[in-house]
Structures are given as C-alpha cells and as structure tokens.
C-alpha cells in the first residue's frame, strides 16, 4: 500500500515521500498517535551534528519515541484499535553477553534508519509493546524511561556502596526522568539535582533538594552520580561530579556530547571511581518502563507535567513548527500526530 514518510532532508528541511509499503506475514500495521521530540532529534534537525554525520545519515525520518494504534494484524493477535508503544531498536542480531542496544548490527530508528514520522508503520510483533489498561499520552515516554532502566541495570551491577545520596546533574527532561525513576524505585534514596536554571529545577518537586551548580555548598556527601547534561557543558558537569563524589562511587554517563570531553583520570583513579557509559535500551527495558508507568499513578502524574507543549501536526509546516517550538520549551514537546 502507499505510505508516506516525512524525512529530514537537510537541516530544518522536512519533505514527504510516498512509497510502497509491503506488509510481511508476521508484521502488523500501526498508526503513530503521539510522538515525542528527543535531544537527538533536535541535533539532527538543527544541524548540530558534524557535517559528515549529517551527510551520511540524511535523508532520514526522525523521532524514536512514539505510541501508536493498531490498524491491522493479519494473525489477529493484536485487536484493531488497540494501543501500543513502538520500539525503536530493531533486534535483528544477538551476540552472547552483549545487550541488544550495544550490538552495532542492530539498527536504531531515527539514527541510521528511518524513525516514526510516517502515516503508518509496518513492524514485527517485537517492534511493539501493547498497552494494557487505560491509554495515556505519557506512554510516549516509555522509550526515555527505558533508557534509565538500561543505565540502572549497569549501575546496580557496579555500585559498591548502597542506600545513599545520589546526585543527578542536569535540569532538563533526561535529568527529570532519571530522578523520577530513582524516586519511584528507591523511595528512601536521597536525590539531589544540580542544574543552572531555577525555573526548570522547580519542576523537580519529588527530589530531596536542588542546587544551582554555581552555588553548591561545601562538604556535601554524594555517593553516586548521574550525568544528564550532555553537549559542551557535560565536561564542566563531569569535572564537578569528580570533585564532589565520594570514593568508590559510580558515575553513570547519559549525556551525549558531539565533541570529545576531557576527564581528569587522576581523580577517577585516586577515588577508585567507576564511570559507566549508557546509551539507548532494549525491549526488556521498555517493558520495565511500561510496568513502571502502569503500576504508579504518581509516576504518571509526574510524567504528565514533563510535557511543556503538545502540538497537533497535520502537515510538514506543523512539523517544522513543532521542532522550532521544541527548542524554546523547557521540557518535552509532544506531537499529536494527525497525518
């Protein structure tokens, strides 16, 4: 059947392309409902990736955070009209001991292959996670939350000291979600957030305390840290983390930086720290994220206020508007996809 895909052709230029979509025997057809713009999408859209990266990856449809409605399932496993979360990682290859999201052979949608900016998606069953019970826009954050579960899996394996104070660096959406998941999973944990914009940090009502990075009190004890700053400021954040973290702590790095970041390895060695890189997630992490959303009313409420703006999109002009607005919004920009 004829399908439409909306690809970023070059910086700030989105074009619709019509092409034939063939539905495989074990594939379902789903229509995206809600899409959420991620920092990675913004880097492509605004051309903040290196030119050689843009040349290699574009044209490409953006967006890897999405929910959808099932339009058709030949095998009848998923009812027409049922709601699903779309999984951006295509787990085509398995390797012993290697998590699917770290296997370079597994494509990730909106980074190398087309993302979810389409009128409908033909996908294998493994590409969707059915939503049981009440449907809500917050399921669009499943992928983002799953990234936190992926980071926590490595964090749990690595940390030596427990039950302590955790510092989260960053005052944006990723930092918010990391702090929220920590709060939901570890109710007794002391969570401190370090950022620079007071207006944004006010949103973190569920953490123990927020600090301006320029006015941090001396002698704060922090056992482990999560770095969610990314881009050029991640270097300063890591520098501050290394200074403040207690010996034998874990530093979970989640912020993406296009440029190389300098890290003082003497401090890492002296304190016996563990630096844990973390990126993306697999389908199991996404299921954990779904379970968290389903099990906690409080979590859902906090996720609802993570949405800075919800924008209806019916055409390419609306898409451009949504991306431009996303750069002005403090937190997440969610698209109601009416294509």
């Amino acid at each position: 059947m004829i399908g439409r895909i909306y690809r970023l052709m070059d910086t700030k230029r989105i074009e619709m392309i019509q092409r034939e979509v063939n539905l495989g025997l074990n594939e379902i057809l789903a229509k995206p409902d809600f899409l959420s713009i991620c920092a990675a999408d913004q880097r492509y859209y605004f051309g903040r990736r290196r030119r050689e990266v843009l040349n290699k990856k574009l044209p490409m449809a953006l967006i890897h955070e999405a929910t959808a409605t099932v339009l058709y399932d030949k095998n009848g496993k998923l009812p027409v009209g049922s709601k699903v979360v779309l999984v951006p990682l295509i787990e085509e290859n398995q390797a012993d001991g290697l998590k699917a999201n770290y296997n370079p052979q597994n494509p990730f949608m909106s980074s190398g292959v087309d993302g979810f900016m389409r009128d409908f998606v033909a996908t294998a069953y493994s590409g969707v996670i059915p939503v049981a019970g009440d449907y809500s826009v917050v399921y669009v954050f499943c992928e983002m939350i799953s990234v936190v579960f992926n980071a926590l899996e490595a964090f749990e394996k690595s940390r030596v000291t427990k039950n302590e104070t955790v510092g989260v660096w960053g005052d944006g959406s990723m930092s918010y979600v990391v702090s929220l998941v920590l709060r939901c999973l570890y109710p007794d944990m002391k969570i401190l957030v370090f950022g620079k914009t007071q207006r944004k940090m006010q949103r973190f009502s569920f953490v123990n305390k927020t600090y301006n990075i320029d006015k941090v009190p001396q002698n704060l004890h922090i056992d482990h840290c999560f770095e969610c700053v990314g881009e050029k400021n991640s270097e300063a954040a890591i520098k501050q983390i290394l200074k403040m973290i207690a010996p034998q702590g874990c530093v979970s790095l989640l912020g993406v930086s296009e440029e190389a970041v300098v890290i003082n390895t003497r401090t890492v060695l002296d304190k016996g720290l563990k630096l844990i890189g973390s990126s993306r997630s697999d389908a199991k992490d996404m299921k954990k994220a779904m379970e968290l959303i389903q099990s906690s009313d409080v979590c859902r409420k906090y996720l609802e206020i993570l949405i800075s703006e919800k924008i209806k999109v019916k055409n390419e002009k609306d898409m451009v508007h949504a991306f431009e607005q996303s750069s002005l919004n403090d937190f997440k920009t969610v698209i109601k996809w009416e294509i």
Binding site: M1, I2, L29, K31, T69, L71, Y72, V80, G81
Partner: peptide, 11 residues
C-alpha cells in the same frame, strides 16, 4: 487497489 487499501486500513 492502492486506493482501496487506504480505506481497508482506516478504522
């Protein structure tokens, strides 16, 4: 058929 398919998938 291309036309009809758009109506087949419309809920």
């Amino acid at each position: 058929i291309n036309t009809l398919e758009q109506f087949f998938i419309n809920t």
